[in-house]
Design a protein around this nucleic acid. Structure first.
Lengths: 210, 210, 210, 210
DNA sequence: GATGAATGAGCATTCATTCAT
DNA sequence: CATGAATGAATGCTCATTCAT
C-alpha cells in the first residue's frame, strides 16, 4: 500500500483541525450560548492557538454558522429510505420512526444542535431559514408522504395529520425542551410520552372525523 | 377623600419608573436577546438615565430575572377558576382552554416571554426553575385535574393524557416556536392546528386503549 | 459676579478633557506616527481611562482627523489682515510675513502638525483636501494678492511669482523637513536661508524677465 | 563559453527572488505606507511564500530599510560626471540638471522613494541618516561646486546659493509633495515652476547683493 | 433620588514571526 | 531552500457598572 502523499496528508490534517475547532465550539456554544462563549476557550479546548481559528473561519459568527451547517446533516435521508423501502402499516412506521428520532436525535448531540438553533435562531435568521429548508420542510414532506400513503391504504379516515404534520412531531419538541430545561425539577419519561402519543394518534386515526 | 401622602405618591412614582424600565427591557430583550441588549438602550427607551436603572435593579442579570418574574404572572388562575366553576364536558373545556391560551398567550406579548425563557433558560437556571414552578407545574396540575374529572365521568377511557399531560400542550409549543422562527418561510395556521389537535384527542380518548 | 451654572461648568470640563485628549494624541502622533500610537498611551498621557476617549471621538482615525482639524487653524487670517492693512513695499511685506511664518509655524507646534500632515496625508486623503482648502489655497491666494499689488505698483517686473507663488514658500517646506529630519546630521540655519531667499527674490523681481 | 556553475546560477536566482521581494515591497510601501503594508501581500505580489521573505530579510523593518538602501542609489553620479565634464555656463548647467532631476526623479519611481522617506523617516532615523549621507550631502556638495565654479568665472556676484544650496532644490521638494498630495485639488505645472525658478535665480545671481 | 460622564476589564481580531515538513 | 500553517502578543473598541455632582 503506497504511502499517502504529503499533500493528501495535509488535507486530512487540515480537516482534522477544523473538526477539532468545530467540536470545541460546539461544546461551548451548547454549554454557554453564542454570546458567552469565548474564542479563547474554543481555541484552548480545540488545542490550537487563538489565531488558528481564523485560518479556518473568518469570524466568531461564521464559526457558529459553519458549525450549524456542518452539524445539521439530518438523519432524514436514512429515515426516508427506510420508510420508502418498507411496506409496514402506519403504526409500525410511526413507531419505527419515533424510535429512530429518539435514538438519533434526542439521545445524541443532535439534540443540542436543535436546542442551540431554537435558542439562537432569533439572532441568526439565516440559520432559521437553513434549518427550515434542510430539516423541517423535508421532515414535514416525509410525514405527509407517510400519512398519505396510509390514507390511500384506508388506514386513516381523517385528514388532520395531513394538514398539520407538525402534530406528529410536537411531542419531540416538548421532550427536547423539557429534558434540556426542566428535567431536574420534574423528570419526563420521553419514551413513555412518545409511546402514549402514538397510541393516541392511532386510535384517533382509525376513527372518521365527525 | 384625603390626598395621598407624599410618601405614597413617591412610591407610586417609583413603581411607575420601575415599570417603564421593565417595559423597555422587555421590548429589547425580546427583540435582541439578553446578550445583545444594551443597558444604554434600555435607559433611553425607558426615558431614564443609565445610572437610574441601578437604583431599581442591581445588575443586568437581575433586570432580566426581575423582568421574567414580573411578566410570568400567568393567566392560569383565571383558567383554573373557570374550569373549576364550569361543569362542561371535556371537549368543551379543552376548546375553551385552548382558545384562552391562544388568545391570552400566543397572541399577546406573553408569547414573547415564553420564547425568551426558552431561549435564555439555559443561561438562567433560576428562571427555568421559576417557570417550571410557577407555570408548568401548575399548568400540568390543572390539566391532570381536568383529565381526571373527565375520566371520573367516563368521558375518557385511557390514561395517556393523565400520565403525560404535556401531550395536550405540545402543539402550543410548536405553534409558538414556529410562528417565531419559521412563519416567514412556511406559514402555520396555529388555530387550525389546535382545532385539529382537539379533534384528534377527543376521538382518541373515547376509545379504550388496547 | 454670579457663580457659573453647573451646566456651564460641565461644558467647560468637557472641553478641557477633550483638549487634554487631543493634546496627548498630538504629542504621540507627532512622536510615533499614527500607526505606532496606542490609544492606551493617549489615555494615560491625557490622564483619562481608555474608554473615555470614545466619549469624545468615535475611533482612532476620527481622533486623528479631529486633531488635525482643530490644529489646522491657521495664522493666515492674522497675516491677511496685516498685509491688507499695511501699505509697505513688497520687500518689507515679505520679510514681515516670513518672520511671522517662522515664528508662528516653524518655531511652534504648528510645525509638527504640518509634518504630520505631510507624513500621513497619503493615508488620509480627507486631510490632504482639508489642508489644501484651509491653508494652501488661502495662502497661495494671499501670496498672489501681494504679488499683484506689488506688480501694480511697479515693484515687480516679471510674472513668475504670480504664476507660481509656491516658489515663495518652497524654502519653508525645506526648512520644516530639514529641521525635522536632518538637523542632527547637518544643521540648517533656517532664518539665514529665508533671508537669503528674500534677497534673491527681491533682486530677481526688480529685473524684467528677458 | 563555459556554462555557469550551478552555484553561480543559484546565486542569481537568489538575487532574482530578493529583487522580486523588494519590488513587491516597494509598490506596497509606496501605496499604503509601512504600517499598512502586510507581509502577506508582499509575499503574494512577489510570488513567494510568506516565510520565504524571512530567508532574505530578518524582519519587516529590515525589509523596509533594505528596500530604501537598494532604491536610494542616486542618479547623482551621472549628474556629477556630466557637470564635471561639461564647461557650460551656469544657466545651462542648471537647466540641464533640473531637467535630469525632473526626468530621473520626479517622473520615475524615485519620486515615490523620496516621498516614502519623507513620510517614514520620523520612524526610521537610520534612514534619515542614510538619505542625508548618500543623497543630500552629496547633492549639496555638487550644487556648491557648481555655484563656486560659476562664482570663480564671475557669473555670480552674490553668495546666497553657496551658503544655502537648499534654495536651489527647494522647488523640487514642493513639486514632489504637491504632485503626491494635492494634484487632485489644484494641479501644479512642475516643469513651468522649475523654469520660472531658474529664471528668477539667474536674474538674481547676476546682480550683486546690496 | 437622578444623572450621565468616567471607568477599565474583557474580547474579537490582526499580523509579524516561527518552524515542522 | 521554500513553504504556509500555526502561533500568541498586541490592540482597538465595547459596555456593565460606578460615583461625583
Amino acid at each position: 500500500m503506497p504511502r499517502k502523499s504529503s499533500r493528501a496528508r495535509n488535507l486530512e490534517q487540515r480537516q482534522d483541525k477544523l473538526q477539532a475547532i468545530l467540536a470545541a465550539a460546539f461544546d461551548l456554544f451548547v454549554e454557554k450560548g453564542f454570546a458567552d462563549t469565548r474564542l479563547d476557550e474554543v481555541a484552548a479546548r480545540a488545542g490550537v492557538a487563538k489565531g488558528t481559528i481564523y485560518l479556518y473561519v473568518p469570524s466568531k459568527t461564521a464559526l457558529f454558522e459553519e458549525l450549524i451547517h456542518s452539524a445539521i446533516s439530518t438523519p432524514i435521508e436514512g429515515i426516508e429510505a427506510q420508510v420508502a423501502a418498507s411496506d409496514l402499516p402506519l403504526e409500525a412506521v410511526l413507531r419505527l420512526m419515533f424510535r429512530r428520532i429518539r435514538k438519533e436525535v434526542l439521545e445524541t448531540s443532535r439534540r443540542d444542535i436543535v436546542r442551540l438553533i431554537i435558542s439562537e435562531a432569533g439572532r441568526f435568521p439565516e440559520i432559521a431559514e437553513l434549518y427550515h429548508r434542510e430539516v423541517l420542510s423535508r421532515g414535514l414532506r416525509l410525514l405527509r408522504g407517510i400519512i398519505e400513503r396510509a390514507a390511500a391504504r384506508g388506514e386513516i379516515r381523517s385528514d388532520e395529520l395531513a394538514r398539520f404534520p407538525q402534530l406528529i412531531i410536537a411531542p419531540f419538541v416538548v421532550g427536547l425542551l423539557w429534558t434540556s430545561l426542566f428535567q431536574d425539577y420534574e423528570p419526563l419519561d420521553v419514551e413513555g410520552m412518545l409511546d402514549a402519543h402514538v397510541d393516541l394518534l392511532m386510535r384517533a386515526l382509525k376513527t372518521a372525523s365527525s
